[in-house]
Design a protein around this nucleic acid. Structure first.
Lengths: 172, 172
DNA sequence: TATTGTTATACTCTATAACTATA
DNA sequence: TATAGTTATAGAGTATAACAATA
């Protein structure tokens, strides 16, 4: 399938497909989309991991740092750092659990909810930006195809695999 | 459009779409695909940036480090490190240009060509793996949609925007 | 003086390991 | 003894800045 073209010099400009297949395109467009999103939320003083944590805490208030670490496929100390940031910014609160005093129950502050709402608007604009080349039907098609891949590849819906290096399994 | 759900506790399990739209799916699947690819080429002792450089040098033998830096949107010192690795592994050669002795003309060694062929086979398997959920038509559909996005977003075909931090523009 | 490549250095991100406090 | 969280430390990756050789 791939053109042999061995040690011959200078690329043949009329070669069939120098760009790469669907997998490469996915990685390329995905990295671009992630970068653009990082740029946008950066204006709010947030990183993409920050946003993910805000979403997860909002979706399940009171959860522990340990549970976040497990779901994200990340080491607990990593969560400490991440939550520290959000804590110092006054977006999340750590409340010592009264039942088991080892746990920190995580909650969004009022400001945290406000910022998360801003993020949602911005995410909607981001969505329109990235999909500007596609009409309504094409956008739905793309979404459906990607959801097929997500399901088959065993990805957790709604969880971005870019929080730590545990997610990209290591090679020996 | 987004459900208001403010400080109310516990997510509503029947909520419309907790997962995210096409942009998020792209970032999610893209990061996954990139991670899996990194894992595969890792078995050959290579990183994804390494592979990109090998491809670019193979496609245009004799090019300079400076031109690579420009095309990748990366600082020249970064290219030094990258090429150092490939050089030490015996995959690329730096040949002092006879016309302008400031330039290093980059070429793949025989071993470099051999390894790049291995990478191509492995990339084909990777492609099949990532797209395992899709039939032939769906795969072509996905590719076509992604190519539309690549064009409209001003991405350089065949260049992955993940080489440095210059590609993901910084926020002030 | 401008350009190619290099070195030295610092900064950011993330993991590992040792530690504290609860249980 | 086991678990949630923390701190201290180290490594990888990448940028910035100063520098050498050549033009």
């Amino acid at each position: 399938m791939t053109t042999p073209r061995q040690a011959s010099e200078e690329r043949d400009a009329s070669a069939p497909r120098p760009r790469g297949g669907a997998a490469f395109l996915l990685a390329q467009v995905g990295a671009h989309a992630a970068g653009r999103f990082a740029e946008r939320v950066g204006h709010l003083g947030l990183t993409p991991p920050d946003v993910g944590l805000l979403r997860m805490i909002a979706g399940q208030p009171g959860r522990s740092q340990r549970s976040l670490a497990t779901d994200l496929g990340v080491v607990p100390s990593r969560v400490v750092t991440l939550i520290d940031n959000l804590d110092h910014k006054g977006l999340v609160e750590r409340r010592r659990s009264t039942e088991d005093r080892r746990h920190h129950a995580l909650h969004l502050s009022a400001e945290g909810h406000r910022v998360l709402d801003e993020v949602r608007q911005l995410a909607s604009a981001h969505e329109d930006d990235i999909c500007a080349a596609l009409d309504r039907d094409q956008r739905a098609q793309l979404t459906a195809l990607l959801e097929l891949v997500v399901g088959q590849q065993g990805l957790t819906p709604g969880v971005h695999p870019g929080y730590g290096q545990l997610s990209r399994k290591r090679h020996p």
